[in-house]
């Protein structure tokens, strides 16, 4: 017996929603960052589940996950570097206080 694909998709949607809300609500740059990772992983879960449920012999969905993970790793490296330098500059990582680019 196996779980239907719906369970995975619901879990994925929940994770994604948590991620979106986290990005929208939290002010701490690190937390926002983690929430973005959460959204990426929600997408990964959806990819894998749908690939499996379609029963295709091509591992396309799973392949995509690797791409997403690679991009996420790069993003983490750059993003954390930006946050570090913002902190050095502003002594804060509260995104509301980092608004000097406004028009």
């Amino acid at each position: 017996m196996s779980l239907g694909v719906e369970y995975y998709l619901v879990l994925s949607a929940l994770l994604f929603t948590i991620g979106v809300l986290g990005v929208l609500i939290r002010r701490n740059a690190i937390i926002i960052f983690m929430c973005i990772e959460l959204m990426l992983n929600a997408a990964n879960l959806a990819f894998v589940a749908i690939n499996r449920s379609l029963g295709s012999s091509d591992p396309d969905g799973q392949l995509f996950v690797f791409f997403v993970m690679a991009v996420a790793a790069a993003e983490v490296a750059i993003g954390l570097a930006i946050i570090v330098s913002v902190f050095k500059h502003k002594k804060t990582i509260n995104v509301d206080e980092v608004n000097s680019l406004k028009g």
Binding site: V23, L24, R27, I32, V95, D96, V98, N99, S100, L101, K102, G103
Partner: peptide, 14 residues
């Protein structure tokens, strides 16, 4: 139009 650009990341995201 420049008033739209608040500099607050989360406004953009919303």
């Amino acid at each position: 139009l420049r008033r739209l650009q608040t500099g607050l990341v989360q406004v953009y995201i919303v």
